[in-house]
Computed example of a mutant assay.
Amino acid sequence: MITVVGEALVDLIAAADGRTFTAHPGGSPANVALGLSRLGQRAVLGTRLGDDLFGRMVRAHLVESGVDVRALPAPTADTSVAFAATDEAGVARYDFRLSWDVTDLPPLDGAECLHTGSLATLLAPGAEVVEAAMRTAPTVSFDPNVRPSLSGTPEQERPRVERQVALSGVVKVSEEDLAWLYPGADPAAKAAQWLALGPSLVVVTLGSQGAHAVTATRATTRPGPPTQVVDTVGAGDAFTAGLLHWLSTAHLLGGAHPRIAELPATALDNALDFANAVAATTCSRAGANPPTLDELGSVRDLLP
């Protein structure tokens, strides 16, 4: 079982006219839980959802795919909303209306991994609750998923992000996030520097160019498969779900993440190729709509 903690919300995605919006269930952690469940993992999502029109839609969407949704206690209850518009390449930009004021998390008993990040590790007061849980989980997976419109300056955010990287066993970060946090820095070099903070695996997603991974014993870059992109909403979250599913199948979570350094080159390549394929499939359709294991076809052969 993998426990995911973080925001679930509605993405209102603008059409080409900029005036018509389509509602899609979203939220980075919720998307990861959805992706895990569709791949066959037992996924628990601790989140904040209102008993309103959007909240009922999001909950039904997640439960339909098998996610165990657990509403976290919070003083406010309205379901959060993100407005999204995509550019000519299908890359999304966001404007948020949300809060993250949870006061407690689901118990981690039986969970082999806690995955979190995004707004759940950024927004007070709930971020403090989440960070406390990161200190006790057997394995922590972290995706900073930086949101500049809700953050301070890069100089203000770096200490927080680096502190949370140091609490994690597995870190996934996009090259866009690194470019904002460390303007002009080489993504591969920064991944190696983050690895030195304590994680066993740091992966940088490179958009259509695939992903780069570094462990204590090796580094590798794997290309993404050719894809007809509809939009990139949820692509990074789908990648995270694919990566965690691969690591779980290899019995490298549950406190066993230090053994990731022992992975031979072929196995590490397979992990990235599997995660890249999950993300690419998500990019080929609208919204955060990750694939099931059956939809991946022969890609399933990359699993250990």
Rank of each mutant, 00 (worst) to 15 (best):
A241D: 11
H245V: 12
R42G: 07
R160P: 03
L197R: 08
S149N: 12
T116W: 05
L150H: 10
L253I: 04
A111T: 08
S284R: 02
P148H: 08
V4E: 05
L303R: 09
A43V: 10
G287A: 04
T136A: 04
M57W: 01
T220F: 03
F21M: 01
D68P: 07
L197V: 12
K172P: 10
P125S: 11
A92I: 13
P144F: 03
F274W: 13
P154M: 08
W100D: 10
W180L: 12
T292F: 01
A188S: 15
A120V: 09
G117L: 09
L178T: 14
V5L: 15
D52E: 07
V173L: 01
D87F: 02
A71F: 12
V203G: 04
P290T: 09
T281A: 12
G46N: 08
A166Y: 11
R163P: 01
R163D: 13
D269R: 07
N145M: 05
V4N: 08
P125E: 06
I13F: 00
M1T: 15
H61K: 04
E155M: 04
T266L: 09
G66Y: 07
D78K: 04
F239Q: 05
W246E: 13
E175R: 06
A43Y: 06
A219Y: 00
A74F: 09
T22P: 00
V299W: 13
V140Y: 00
W100L: 11
A265D: 15
V278Y: 09
T217W: 02
R59W: 02
T153R: 04
R285F: 03
V214A: 08
G224P: 04
I260F: 01
N276E: 08
T79E: 10
D301G: 09
L122A: 15
T282A: 00
L39G: 12
A279W: 06
A14E: 05
V165N: 01
A286I: 08
A71I: 15
T217F: 00
R218F: 06
A120S: 14
